[in-house]
Nucleic acid binder design. Structure first.
Lengths: 205, 205
DNA sequence: ACAGTTATTCTACGAGCGTTGAATACGGTT
DNA sequence: AACCGTATTCAACGCTCGTAGAATAACTGT
């Protein structure tokens, strides 16, 4: 891939877009190991570059992580899109199939996995990601749900989606990881719809 | 070898049972930060003890982690218990309410969270935990499901359970984290039952 | 040819990590 | 009191990490 003569110093000839190479390497690295597990040195090695160069471009590890998050599709926008142009009764299926369609494409998968791996950690980054999930994605949902207790309905949906994503992409549970997306959409769709529009048992059950 | 049975001569047990204090501190520490994030030094500090003492008792960080996992309820046994003495149609509700009942008790919660946080990581520990989940819990389920494709049904259930646990205990999504367990059981129960006994859409959907 | 800018590397610091082996405090036995 | 074994600590090792600053190499405009 990258041919770097070990003894050579200074700027590499041809000047490829090193910054982007670093960003992609970082994306893979964060996806594989989460924020805490990934290392600047590992990213640099994967990009065939000196660790200092990574920080020269991105300033700090946290900023590098945030930079990788700009790559993927905006999830809140996706939620809004699905909710707006699908009719009730098929929303769940549309949501799942859209999501799986987007993230089965390897180009966008690794930032997703990076996020999933990072929410398990702690510290400012994990908190940031958690707040993003809570205030951006969940809120986008709750805002568009008609029935009572939209907040609860939104997190119910969230819990099933999280379980699916973690099982399929992080833990890679079989046969969940290799089942056809359309079929999963047909399976999970009714669950989502029930959470979104079905009746909820009262509190004193 | 390390944790030899208490001898009869020499200095008798530490003022309180120090070894157990360390174990509990470790349990909290692993729960809070996952395997990679937790540190021997942190555990030692929390237990008011020297780091070397921790390793003197438990040998290595990995063995310490494994030792903390022996504390909680055996999940596979719990699954079998629920499946055996509940009748179809209420299995989902029983499963969820049993699980939440066990893990809402603070005594057993932190090992669970430690496991959940650790599967997100990588390396031998994460793999071990993943295999444990796959071969022990999921298999216990699949073995007792009657319909076709029990393996798929088991992971579908697993995905919803994972989502609930991560949302409630790790991310602490509101209002999921504070909703009454009985109500959650009533909500999630039918979903579980549908995955377990309902019809599954064919593959060519 | 020369100066300027940018890309890249080198070297190093200080901190935190898991782990180790030797040293010390203490309780029980004789 | 002497002794032994356990409990606990101390001090250090080798490692990896994020980060900083100075140094070098290549390209660009003059």
């Amino acid at each position: 891939m990258w041919t770097v003569a070990r003894g050579r110093k200074g700027r590499r000839p041809g000047s490829p877009d090193t910054q982007d190479e670093i960003l992609q390497a970082a994306s893979r690295e964060f996806a594989a190991k989460g924020y805490d597990g990934a290392t600047i040195r590992g990213v640099a090695a994967a990009a065939g570059v000196d660790p200092a160069l990574v920080l020269h471009y991105f300033g700090t590890k946290e900023q590098l992580f945030i930079a990788t998050l700009h790559v993927p599709v905006n999830p809140a926008a996706m939620v809004r899109g699905v909710l707006d142009d699908a009719q009730p009764g098929e929303i769940g299926e549309r949501l799942i199939s859209t999501m799986l369609g987007v993230w089965d494409a390897t180009a966008h998968r690794s930032p997703l996995v990076a996020v999933l791996r990072s929410v398990a950690g702690e510290g400012p980054v994990a908190d940031t990601v958690r707040q993003f999930i809570e205030h951006s994605i969940i809120a986008a949902f709750a805002q568009r749900l008609p029935g009572p207790e939209p907040q609860l309905r939104a997190v119910l949906i969230g819990s099933q989606v999280i379980g699916l994503l973690v099982g399929r992409y992080v833990v890679r549970l079989e046969p969940l990881a290799s089942t056809d997306p359309a079929r999963l959409a047909a399976i999970y769709g009714p669950t989502i719809d029930r959470y979104a529009y079905g009746s909820l048992p009262p509190d004193g059950a």
